[in-house]
């Protein structure tokens, strides 16, 4: 198992981390798209986590009823990376 480093931000590094804390990282950078991650930390261990894509265009809805030969041109634009 690789070691995963979760930074815990506390105001005073001398004191022990709070027993339960939620860390929110939004935006996550160096990715394509928009991502938000929330992590629940209890006694220095991750107990729960949520991730959310925070952008929606509705390309599935845009494509309905169109000429199937055009599909690649639309779907190609889902991600330009």
């Amino acid at each position: 198992m690789p070691k995963i480093f979760i930074p815990i931000v506390t105001k005073n590094s001398e004191s022990a981390p709070p027993p339960s804390q939620k860390v929110v990282i939004d935006p996550i950078t160096r990715i394509e798209g928009h991502l938000r991650v929330e992590v629940q930390v209890q006694n220095g261990k991750v107990t729960d986590a949520w991730s959310a894509g925070t952008m929606f265009r509705g390309i599935e809805l845009v494509m309905q009823g169109r000429d199937p030969r055009d599909a690649w041109i639309f779907t190609q634009r889902i991600c330009g990376v």
Partner: peptide, 12 residues
């Protein structure tokens, strides 16, 4: 956002 080092609150 795609190329910057900070994430989250620091990037904002």
């Amino acid at each position: 956002e795609t190329v910057m080092v900070p994430s989250g609150r620091m990037s904002v």
